[in-house]
Design a protein around this nucleic acid. Structure first.
Lengths: 333, 333
DNA sequence: CTGTTAGCGCATTCAT
DNA sequence: ATGAATGCGCTAACAG
């Protein structure tokens, strides 16, 4: 490996001058600067990151901690996050926790040990104590309230989605949502409850005047969604809202197994917008959070903190309700 | 940050002894060794990776270069890859190329500059010249033939899939496959061709004795799959084989738009096995490569090279044909 | 503007 | 078995 001293000697200058010429810090004669740069390129010089990090006391590294690398719901944000941070001169190091709190704790510690300068965190365990030695921005989920975060405005989005469903004439609705421990689950549910209340639909197991909203909690898995539908059966609502794409998948599977046709026998609305939502005939009506924008904002927030700026309250990123065919209109009465 | 010299002093030993006690290299008295370790833990010491890397001349870092972080086809392998390498004491640094050859070249160079000790590579550009300074194992696709690689045995898998289709009675088949530039596309196509030939089905545009196999190349996108179907229309085969999950998606979309019912009017088989393949009614018949095993083998191969062992020919990992409802049986006639 | 020097934290010599 | 000294490659401080 060719090192700085090599290009310095070849260019006939001292190490300091070569360093300044290459980094742009400090002043150096135009001509010699260009010469050094030319020599460096010709020799194929590239700085040793370890030596630089040791000397500068900074690693130019950002840690990303997420539950599951194989979940496109997260990776959709990561792609742009990676790009933004890379543009700002940071390397992203990724660790996945497999949704396990103890793995999460260890991975977090490992990142601190690695001297990352900041962390983007998709929390699993809401009770995890976060280190204060390094800026952290939370993505998607939010654990501590005073924490910088970039999240989808699920409350408004699911409200809007639910309202659209009500406007289509549905007054017997069931909601399947993830565990209460996740801030995302709570927010999504809140959106549905708010819309229902505004429409005069009571949260009740038995229909009142034909109207009711039932809530079922389930693990955020395909099986979870399927079991929730199974429990509802045979007293089905006119419209089912499954508040995660996995839950939608499970609901569809169970409906298929039981011969319940969507949307003829049961309307279905979802959350998120994986590609297959629009391939599925006649398309799944859903609230689609803006994943790429969330990634971008997370990067911005972290970069701002790194620059010493104060970050305001959590950024709530608006999404979009996609109306497709899985929710049918109901004739009144 | 507490450093080695701190724990050394607190334990009442020299820096060298502390280093040896913690690393296990060299010999040190049992008792003092335990004392040093205890002190280190109590002080919350963790070694500075930069300093260690500078001194040891190794970064304990592996680079992963893939086309798209948001594509679960890749990330499914990455999850286990990450785990295996992490267990072996390596940090994974990830870069995505966005399927762009020039980005790929730059990202590869960046990794070399970062002094990664090895690279796992999902190639985009088959003509990319690979550095020889560092062990590289290719995942999924294969560019240079003498390169260590872990890939799915697509040839055998698609052969088996096609054979199953033929056995179901189909003799008018069309195959949609990706660009010839990808080794994966070539292998998958080869599998279909081999099975067809064995069944006496000629590769031809016009049916001979009612039998023919047509081949259409398309970009590996949803639109690509849709357009391929559009071009086939209205002279449809009895069974369509779309050799990537994106192509399947496109084919389904176009069929939906044109009112072609799968599988009543057209049988459809696919490649890969994203979750929605089994949710889709009545399920998509497909060849499912073993993605996790591929990730595991890639890790093994790289670790072996890192240990100085010679790696044999590319590892071909067998997958599994999943028979579902999208391919119907045909009464002979 | 530029050359020389010190030291970042660690693992590894070389003496003892 | 252990302590002291050395140097990995680089940047920042200093002197010129």
């Amino acid at each position: 490996m060719v090192k700085l001293i090599d290009v310095a000697r070849t260019a006939g200058v001292g190490a300091g001058t070569a360093s300044r010429a290459l980094s742009g810090n400090g002043s150096v004669d135009r001509e010699t600067k260009e010469r050094v740069i030319a020599v460096a390129k010709q020799l194929g010089y590239s700085p040793d990151v370890a030596a630089r990090a040791l000397r500068e006391r900074r690693t130019r590294t950002i840690g990303l901690l997420l539950p599951d690398l194989a979940n496109e719901f997260y990776t959709a944000s990561v792609a742009v996050l990676q790009q933004e941070l890379s543009d700002a001169g940071y390397q992203l190091v990724i660790a996945s926790t497999g949704n396990d709190p103890s793995t999460e704790r260890i991975a977090l510690q490992t990142m601190i040990d690695q001297r990352v300068e900041g962390i983007v965190h998709v929390p699993v365990d809401a009770d995890l104590v976060l280190p204060t030695t390094v800026p952290i921005v939370q993505l998607n989920r939010q654990s501590a309230s005073r924490q910088a975060a970039a999240a989808s405005d699920d409350l408004a989005g699911v409200d809007e989605l639910t309202t659209a469903i009500v406007h289509a004439g549905h007054r017997d609705i069931a909601v399947i949502v993830g565990p209460t421990g996740f801030s995302t689950s709570r927010n999504r549910l809140l959106g549905a409850l708010r819309a229902a209340e505004r429409a005069g639909i009571p949260q009740s197991e038995r229909p009142l005047d034909g109207a009711r909203l039932r809530v079922r909690h389930a693990p955020l898995t395909v099986d979870g969604g399927a079991q929730a539908v199974a429990q509802l059966f045979p007293d089905l609502p006119s419209c089912l809202i499954a508040l995660s794409s996995r839950l939608v998948m499970g609901a569809l599977r169970e409906c298929g197994d039981r011969g319940i046709h969507v949307p003829e026998s049961l309307s279905l609305a979802g959350y998120g917008d994986p590609d297959w939502f629009s391939i599925w005939r006649p398309g799944i009506t859903t609230f689609a959070p803006n994943l790429t924008e969330m990634g971008r904002q997370a990067a911005r927030l972290l970069l701002a903190q790194l620059a010493g700026e104060e970050t305001g309250p959590p950024a709530l990123i608006p999404g979009k309700v996609q109306v497709r065919g899985s929710v049918t209109g109901l004739s009144a009465g």
